[in-house]
C-alpha cells in the first residue's frame, strides 16, 4: 500500500442501472507519471471523481495516500493533498483570475506562491481578466496553475490538454513533466491523445467498459509487446493455433501480422517453423498496444 499513491480494488459504480465501473483494479506507484487511457465512456472521469471523493462507489475500495476515500473526513484530508484539473475546465464565471487564486489559496496550507507567480507569468494570465472572457486554452492553463500551486503530492489531471492548440499543449506537457521531475509529485492524468501519454508517462493503465484491461510500466509493456510479420511463400502453412500471447493475427495476401502481448519469442519460433517463411519482429507503439487491448477485450 505504501508505495502506491492510488489503489482501488474491485471498484464498482453504476448510474441508473448502467455500469460505469465494473471491478476496477488500479495501482498508481508513488512518483510515477501515470497515463490513464480509455475510449469515450470507458469510465475515466467516473474513476477520477471517485478518487476525489466526489462520487461514492457502490462496492470495492479506494485508497489514496493509503487512506480510505469513503470516509468523509479522510476524503477531505486527501483533497488537501491533491491538485485537480477537471475535464471541462470550468471555473466560477463571476470571478477574475486574481479572485479565484485568492479564493483557492487559503484552503491549501502548502500553497506555493513562487509557483503561482511563475505560472502567472509563464502562461501570460492577466490577473484582472474575468474567467468567461478567457479561451478554453487559457482556462486550462489557469486550472493547471491552481492545481500546481496547491503544493500537492498528487496531481490528478482529467484531459489536461483537451482543447489546447499545439503550442499550449507543448507548454502544458513540458510543465507537467518538469513538475514530476523536480518535485517528485505523482501525476495521474487521463487523455485521449496517445502521443502525449507516450511522451511523458512512465506507467499506463487502459480502461475499457469500467475494467482495467492493461496496466504497468510503459517501457516494460513496450518491451513485452511485439509486432511479428511473417511472409510465407503461399497463403497456407500457417499454424491453426498460435502460441499463447498472440492477441491478434491478420493475414493479407502472403503477409501475416501477429501482435503479441507476451511470449513473443515462442511466437517467433512458431512462425519460423513454417516452411519458407521469413519472420521479422518489430517494437510496437503505445497506439498499437492501446488499439489491440481495446479490440481484444
Amino acid at each position: 500500500m505504501n508505495d502506491c499513491m492510488i489503489e482501488t480494488n474491485q471498484l464498482c459504480k453504476s448510474f441508473g442501472g448502467r455500469a460505469a465501473l465494473q471491478g476496477l483494479d488500479l495501482r498508481v506507484p508513488a512518483g510515477s507519471i501515470f497515463g490513464f487511457l480509455g475510449r469515450n465512456g470507458a469510465g475515466k472521469t467516473t474513476t477520477i471523481k471517485t478518487l476525489m471523493g466526489i462520487l461514492r462507489c457502490d462496492s470495492g475500495s479506494v485508497h489514496v495516500f493509503g487512506r480510505p476515500v469513503r470516509d468523509a473526513d479522510e476524503a477531505c484530508e486527501i483533497r488537501r493533498r491533491i491538485g485537480f484539473v477537471t475535464e471541462d475546465k470550468e471555473l466560477y464565471p463571476y470571478m477574475t483570475v486574481e479572485q479565484i487564486i485568492r479564493f483557492t489559496r487559503p484552503f491549501f496550507p502548502n500553497w506555493r506562491h513562487d509557483l503561482e507567480q511563475r505560472y502567472l507569468q509563464m502562461f501570460d494570465l492577466p490577473p484582472n481578466q474575468k474567467i468567461p472572457q478567457m479561451s478554453k486554452g487559457m482556462r486550462s492553463k489557469l486550472m493547471l496553475l491552481l492545481a500546481i500551486s496547491r503544493g500537492a503530492e498528487l496531481l490528478i489531471l482529467d484531459e489536461p490538454t483537451d482543447g489546447l492548440d499545439p503550442a499550449a499543449t507543448e507548454d502544458v506537457l513540458r510543465e507537467v513533466a518538469a513538475i514530476a521531475a523536480s518535485t517528485g509529485t505523482t501525476i495521474f492524468f487521463s487523455s485521449h491523445q496517445l502521443s502525449e501519454v507516450d511522451r511523458i508517462a512512465d506507467h499506463i493503465g487502459i480502461i475499457d467498459r469500467g475494467r482495467m484491461i492493461a496496466t504497468g510500466c510503459l517501457d516494460d509493456m513496450k518491451a513485452r509487446y511485439r509486432r511479428i510479420e511473417v511472409v510465407t511463400p503461399e497463403c497456407s502453412g500457417l499454424p491453426a493455433k498460435w502460441p499463447e500471447g498472440a492477441d491478434s493475427v491478420r493475414t493479407e495476401g502472403r503477409v501475416t501480422t501477429v501482435l503479441a502481448s507476451h511470449n513473443a519469442d515462442e511466437i517467433v519460433l512458431a512462425a519460423r517453423s513454417i516452411p519458407g517463411a521469413s519472420v521479422e519482429s518489430f517494437p510496437v507503439t503505445l497506439k498499437d498496444i492501446f488499439l489491440e487491448e481495446v479490440r481484444y477485450n
Partner: peptide, 15 residues
C-alpha cells in the same frame, strides 16, 4: 450543473 461545481467539490471542504 455548471462545470465549476466540480471545482468546488475538489476543495478540501465537507459538503
Amino acid at each position: 450543473l455548471h462545470g465549476s461545481t466540480l471545482y468546488t467539490l475538489s476543495l478540501p471542504v465537507k459538503r
